[in-house]
Design a protein around this nucleic acid. Structure first.
Lengths: 234, 234
DNA sequence: GCTACTCTATGGTCAGACCACATGATCCCT
DNA sequence: AGGGATCATGTGGTCTGACCATAGAGTAGC
């Protein structure tokens, strides 16, 4: 099968990336230049650029100046999140499986962080900040949930594995809309938010105490409990 | 910020997918029809279609007849695999992190399968077939590694979580080239393949025996040992 | 100096044309 | 009638060339 033109362009750009001729923060040549250089039409170059954009490899901006054009970025989580949203939309990724994956990844991450933080409690600062922010009253459900999501992602990040972080971020992106919708219909948000707060604190305390096993179990219970209560994934 | 035209098209298609007006196996209207229906140019429709293709949501084919055109598919693993390849190429996903993620996911999967297969050994058939296929001598390293990869993915699949399966498949896609290249330079393939075979059998036996803990540990050791020996991710 | 204007390079979009391909209908010869 | 060759049709694939929208950089005028 003959490669499509835009795939040829993608292959050339991938070569440049792998060889280090294109670095993060750098810019792709202008579309017209690329088209001329590769002997293809600008339309084909644009199709390749759309794919790169979807893959979180570049960001485009119009205008002139240093920020314009196609800039190389590194956002591995973005395409995975988009993929999860698309396949959730087409009903081919059961929400229950997302929950299962979250439990696996987050309990592992909590365990890792518990160990890593022994003797270096300062690495937990970002998580602590979010925890305290969530304690403030007078917050809409949406605001709380945004912080909540960041808290979970932050814990996963602290485990220090970029792949895990990307998958975790992707799942949050994919599931966010479902969570917001489900909570909006939940009858007793006050009770729920109180419980979520106390569970978050329990998780954090287990991590601070260096008790990885407990941290993992607490996270699992927290996640499973939330989805069971809200009925997401049923 | 005003949405770009192709994003508008994507949003409309997403709506159709979510509402069930577009089902897997169904077909998108022709590009010219979509362009007319949405009042945009065919080029913009094509950019949207490229993104959908990259996201594993559709597959395009030229010609006429029932298989031509843009068909809705459900391949959540494809975009994640592509994303991992791109970001490995741009040196922003350390291979070591991929290995870590594999260990986490596969040991969990092995544990799950061990439990699930108690009393229902027939579900392990696909894995057993691959195991036996890998035992046949007179096989090139590439052929063996292909079966090897499928064996690992199959075990993950048997755990029955689509998200985990997608992530696992994605990681295999992303890492395959590195493994093949590393093995091609390995001095004593015969010894290595013998060890891989025996380790695969050990994993499978632990699963058959329903010993989840042992299965998980054996898988972890197997993966870590392979990458340590071949020097991938160092 | 500062403001307002113009220039220029960039991506964004469009219209229209033609090609390549696969299927299915049609025609013609046997 | 049967079967092979041919053509018609509908699809994506690609190209050309044009124009618009935006944002920075330069420049003229005050």
């Amino acid at each position: 099968m003959a490669a499509k033109t835009y795939q040829v362009v993608l292959a050339k750009i991938e070569t440049d990336l792998a060889a280090g001729r294109l670095l993060v923060g750098g810019r792709l040549p202008a579309e017209r230049i690329l088209a001329q250089r590769y002997g293809v039409s600008r339309a084909s170059v644009r199709e390749a650029i759309r794919v790169l954009e979807a893959m979180g490899v570049i960001r485009t901006a119009v205008g002139s100046g240093p920020d314009a054009g196609a800039t190389v970025i590194a956002e591995p989580a973005a395409p995975m999140g988009a993929a999860m949203r698309w396949h959730l939309a087409s009903h081919h990724l059961p929400v229950a499986d997302l929950v299962g994956a979250r439990v696996l990844i987050e309990s592992w991450a909590a365990e890792q962080v518990s160990t890593a933080a022994v003797g270096r409690p300062e690495i937990l600062e970002p998580a602590r900040d979010l925890l305290l922010a969530m304690d403030s009253p007078d917050m809409t459900a949406a605001e709380f949930l945004a912080l909540d999501a960041r808290f979970h992602v932050t814990l996963a990040e602290l485990a220090g594995n970029v792949v895990i972080t990307a998958v975790m971020t992707a799942m949050r992106d994919g599931i966010q809309a479902y969570v917001t919708a489900a909570v909006a219909q939940y009858p007793d948000w006050e009770t729920m938010v109180a419980r979520l707060r106390s569970e978050h604190h329990a998780v954090f305390q287990a991590v601070v105490a260096g008790d990885g096993l407990l941290a993992g179990q607490t996270v699992s219970a927290h996640i499973n409990g939330f989805y069971a209560d809200t009925g997401i994934g049923q």
